[in-house]
Every structure is written in structure tokens, then in C-alpha cells.
């Protein structure tokens, strides 16, 4: 099946703060470097759900309209570390069959989501 175009999305600390407010997830490991380090993380990390929301954005953009995702899921296999200067997440998709898009989601060249897959309405 055919490959979709790859996209790169910037991830900033400001976006994580906005996402925390919008999603209602106040976990400080996504905003406060000291708390993140206190639990053994190298720095602030993006919400896994932030990255999964980027995957949903990617699918919406590729399909050219929102509301067609029937199923979306992934394992959060590696944290997206967000230093003060920000980072970016890269996403590319491949049609596995006429309804299923297998995604590849990476940060700094490493996979961050395990088996991210979207099933969409035809």
C-alpha cells in the first residue's frame, strides 16, 4: 500500500503547558524540570497523550478532514524529552489496508510510540 507524506511537528514547553490546561492533566513532570528529574527523567517530557494527539493531527491532515478516525492507539515506549529550546516529533504513515494507517512516530531519530495505528472511516 502507498506511503503518506511525512510531517514534522515542533514541541515546545509552552505547548505542553497549554496542553496540560486543555486536557486537565496537571502532572508536573510535563512542566517542571525539577519534578521530572526527581523521578529519574532527564528533563520535562511531553504527555504521551500530547504525542498521540499529534498522531491524530497527522491523520486528520493527511485525510484532509477531521472526524474520520474510528480507532487510534499506541504504546508510549519512549518519552519525548522537551528541553527549554524545544524539540520536534516526526510522523509518517503507510496504508496497511483501505481503512488502516500504520504510523511511525519518532523524536531525534528514535521511535517514541509502539505500534501506533489508526483505523479510519472510508
Amino acid at each position: 500500500m502507498s506511503d503518506l507524506t511525512a510531517s514534522a511537528y515542533p514541541v515546545t514547553r509552552e505547548a505542553l503547558v497549554a496542553y496540560a490546561a486543555a486536557s486537565g492533566d496537571p502532572n508536573p513532570i510535563h512542566q517542571d524540570p525539577e519534578v521530572a528529574r526527581s523521578v529519574g527523567l532527564p528533563d520535562v517530557i511531553a504527555h504521551g497523550m500530547f504525542t498521540l494527539a499529534l498522531a491524530a493531527r497527522y491523520v486528520d491532515e493527511q485525510l484532509g478532514e477531521p472526524g474520520r478516525i474510528l480507532e487510534l492507539g499506541a504504546k508510549f515506549t519512549k518519552p519525548v524529552v522537551v528541553p527549554d529550546s524545544g524539540t520536534q516529533v516526526e510522523i509518517e504513515g503507510t496504508w496497511r489496508d483501505e481503512r488502516t494507517i500504520a504510523l511511525k512516530v519518532t523524536c531525534a531519530g528514535e521511535s517514541v510510540l509502539g505500534n501506533p495505528v489508526a483505523v479510519v472511516r472510508a
Binding site: 511537528y9 505547548a15 497549554a18 496542553y19 490546561a21 486543555a22 486536557s23 500530547f50 494527539a53 499529534l54 491524530a56 493531527r57 491523520v59 486528520d60 491532515e61 477531521p66 472526524g67 478516525i69 487510534l72 489508526a118
Partner: peptide
Amino acid sequence: ATGTPYRQGDPAPA
């Protein structure tokens, strides 16, 4: 928050 395109009346993100 994730830069997802949204216009009034659109369904909510997945």
C-alpha cells in the same frame, strides 16, 4: 495546544 486545525462546528479531535 497541538496545532491541530479546528474550525467551529468540526468534530472534536480523536
